[in-house]
């Protein structure tokens, strides 16, 4: 998981120059409510879970992952690993921005603390 994250981040840094600033800005100011619908309707939930919990090789965690919008955009458009590529033809920039806004909203509160969940500590 950590390795995948590092790979994604690496790719994101390399691609920052080419990713449009406008796209990233649009991502940061997207409509999270609409983004949730898009997240569910575009199959993101299938691998990452409806609340971005992820948890395995099929789809890493998105919530509380700390991935910047630019990196998310890069991963969506030109994914590393086995994620389906979402080009602008199938997912316009505005939709991507809203999805990223939803992922950011999932991360807005504090992450659940595993130590406070007794059955996770058996």
């Amino acid at each position: 998981m950590t390795q995948m994250k590092a790979m994604i981040l690496g790719l994101a840094v390399a691609a920052l120059a080419s990713a449009s600033a406008a796209n990233a800005q649009s991502a940061a100011s997207g409509d999270a409510a609409r983004g949730k619908e898009l997240f569910l309707n575009n199959g993101c939930y299938a691998c990452h879970g409806t609340t971005g919990a992820g948890g395995g090789p099929a789809g890493p965690r998105l919530a509380h992952d700390g991935l910047p919008p630019e990196a998310m955009l890069q991963q969506i458009r030109n994914p590393a690993a086995q994620m389906p590529p979402y080009t602008a033809q199938v997912l316009p920039d505005k939709d991507v921005g809203d999805i990223i806004a939803y992922i950011q909203a999932l991360s807005s509160g504090p992450a659940a603390n595993a130590e406070n969940i007794p059955i996770l500590n058996r």
Partner: peptide, 16 residues
């Protein structure tokens, strides 16, 4: 454990 805690109260229920 940290990963498993994510979305602990979600519906549908998380696999973890």
């Amino acid at each position: 454990r940290t990963l498993a805690a994510e979305g602990w109260d979600s519906q549908p229920i998380t696999v973890a």
